[in-house]
């Protein structure tokens, strides 16, 4: 049973890798080059899905944290901590791909634009979450603490976004309601799908790792007194 489950995630990982290659081929070979932004626009096929996956991961942290506090079931804690780690990875991806694009589109690497700034703050909140987990006492207390932080951190997102938006209304904004060619739309949808699979794969793999770690702790308790 156990090995069978591991097998499924491995297959998922391999399929994701294959699809990611296809996505790259589509992005550079099939999608037409955008008139105004040129080649720089290509980064958009990875940047936008990364953003959705990061916010998705933090939403998973939020829900799993509430479920953990309600049920005290370790399973939810493992889901929340795994999703937080993966969410931080995707935020790093946004924060890396964003400036590369901004440099060519806006002429600067960084502006204090609402989405950019919100992402940065969200990244800082969840890096704090990971630090809390690493530097706290182990055990049940830390799981409760991180669940509390997971809930508070996610509730903060709309407030952070609105306040930064009002704070700098004149700052160059992300392209709104971009007119996409049908081919571009197809490639973007495909990328979303592949990134969704990547998210699923990373979270599942991370949960497996936590389960293994947990088992190791139990074994240590039994055999190394």
């Amino acid at each position: 049973m156990k090995s069978n489950k591991d097998g499924i995630t491995t297959v998922l990982g391999l399929v994701t890798m294959l699809l990611m290659f296809i996505a790259l081929l589509l992005v550079f070979g099939y999608a037409p080059i955008e008139k105004a932004m040129g080649m720089a626009q290509k980064i958009f096929y990875f940047h936008v899905p990364s953003a959705f996956m990061a916010f998705g991961s933090f939403a998973i942290v939020f829900v799993a944290s509430i479920l953990y506090l309600k049920s005290k079931n370790d399973k939810y804690d493992r889901v929340a901590s795994s999703a937080a780690e993966v969410g931080v990875i995707f935020s790093i991806l946004i924060l890396l791909t964003g400036p590369i694009w901004a440099r060519s589109a806006w002429g600067v690497w960084w502006t204090w634009e609402p989405r950019l700034t919100t992402t940065l703050i969200l990244f800082l909140i969840f890096v704090g979450y990971l630090m809390l987990r690493n530097y706290g006492s182990s055990g049940e207390q830390m799981k409760r603490y991180s669940a509390v932080l997971g809930i508070i951190g996610f509730l903060d997102v709309p407030l952070v976004y609105t306040s930064i938006k009002w704070w700098a209304p004149e700052v160059t904004s992300h392209p709104q309601g971009l007119e996409l060619e049908p081919q571009m739309k197809f490639v973007l949808t495909f990328s979303f799908f592949v990134f969704g699979m990547l998210l699923l794969y990373l979270i599942l793999k991370r949960i497996e790792l936590s389960n293994m770690r947990n088992k190791l702790e139990l074994l240590k308790k039994d055999y190394l007194r």
Binding site: I121, L124, I125, G128, D156, L159, V160, S163, I164, W167
Partner: peptide, 14 residues
Amino acid sequence: PLLLYPISTPAFIA
């Protein structure tokens, strides 16, 4: 401060 400052950005800005 590591946990509190990022969370309280909206209050600080406002």
